[in-house]
Design a protein around this nucleic acid. Structure first.
Ligand code: MN
Ligand code: MN
Ligand code: ZN
Ligand code: ZN
Lengths: 136, 136
DNA sequence: TCTGTATTTAGACTAAATCTAGAATGAGTA
DNA sequence: TACTCATTCTAGATTTAGTCTAAATACAGA
């Protein structure tokens, strides 16, 4: 049983606003990894008031800082956002650009591989390749 | 015995120009992972002619496409460049921002972990954490 | 040398992200 | 309820990374 957006914001100590709520809900209901502009286009109509670009970026940064969502860097120049906060990694299908979540359990544990000299807080693995047809 | 920049460009089939040569040499002699602007600042004085921003970006894209250098994405919004073409990964010291190369041999092999459904062409691992003092 | 193609240049342009200053919101309190 | 004050949101300006354009230059091959 997973948390609702509302419960998640409460749990993470983020003050609720309708803008934060719809953006969080939008990210929670998609498996895509949308950009700020895609999020703006996707949620603007859910609100009774105009939604500005600055608010989208402010909100995304607030949510990232609070640990509600994550930034995903797979290509130069465009930050993508992800409401999947389980430890996971990404596979980029180079033909379609589709980004697929790879649960951490699918990979061997590399958390400790670097030894004592590096205190690893987090790590991300990004795979690039072809997604075979039957998986699409 | 490693290749010179000149030999590398020849081997990779990139037509030689003085701009390509100094940019390649600049990247080969540093362990940093500089941005385009840092590269522009670092090489401009090596050339007898003015160097334009467009040439830096054109050259970097040409070198990436030819496999002479790699793009490194560790933070939103800024592409970094790397002349280390051995298979390797990166550790970002979150305090200093320093980016350190991690040879692939330091990690367990995750090339095959995804199974048949994903044909992995390449992958990158980025670690974020603290570099312990005695390693600095 | 001549000629065509690739490269470089300066500066305009585009797009991602941030900043600013004022307006709106809204929780806490009288 | 009405007031206060901090926070958030807004529109638009600004900054910055990166691309594009058109003209000048370099340079390889005939
Ligand atoms: Mn950010
Ligand atoms: Mn590129
Ligand atoms: Zn994801
Ligand atoms: Zn590197």
């Amino acid at each position: 049983m997973s948390l609702t957006a509302k419960e998640l914001l409460t749990k993470k100590g983020v003050k609720m606003t309708s803008q934060r709520l719809v953006i969080t809900e939008y990210l929670m209901q998609t498996l895509e990894h949308p950009t700020a502009d895609e999020i703006l286009a996707g949620v603007a109509e859910m609100l009774p008031v105009p939604l500005s670009r600055a608010t989208v970026y402010n909100t995304l940064n607030t949510l990232v800082d609070a640990g509600v969502i994550r930034e995903v860097l797979t290509e130069p120049g465009r930050t993508r956002y992800d409401a999947n906060t389980f430890e996971h990694h990404h596979f980029v299908d180079v033909k379609s650009g589709k980004i697929i979540d790879i649960p951490q359990e699918m990979l061997p544990d590399i958390e400790k591989a670097l030894g004592d000299k590096f205190k690893v807080h987090s790590y991300t693995v990004t795979f690039y390749g072809d997604l075979e047809d039957d998986k699409k």
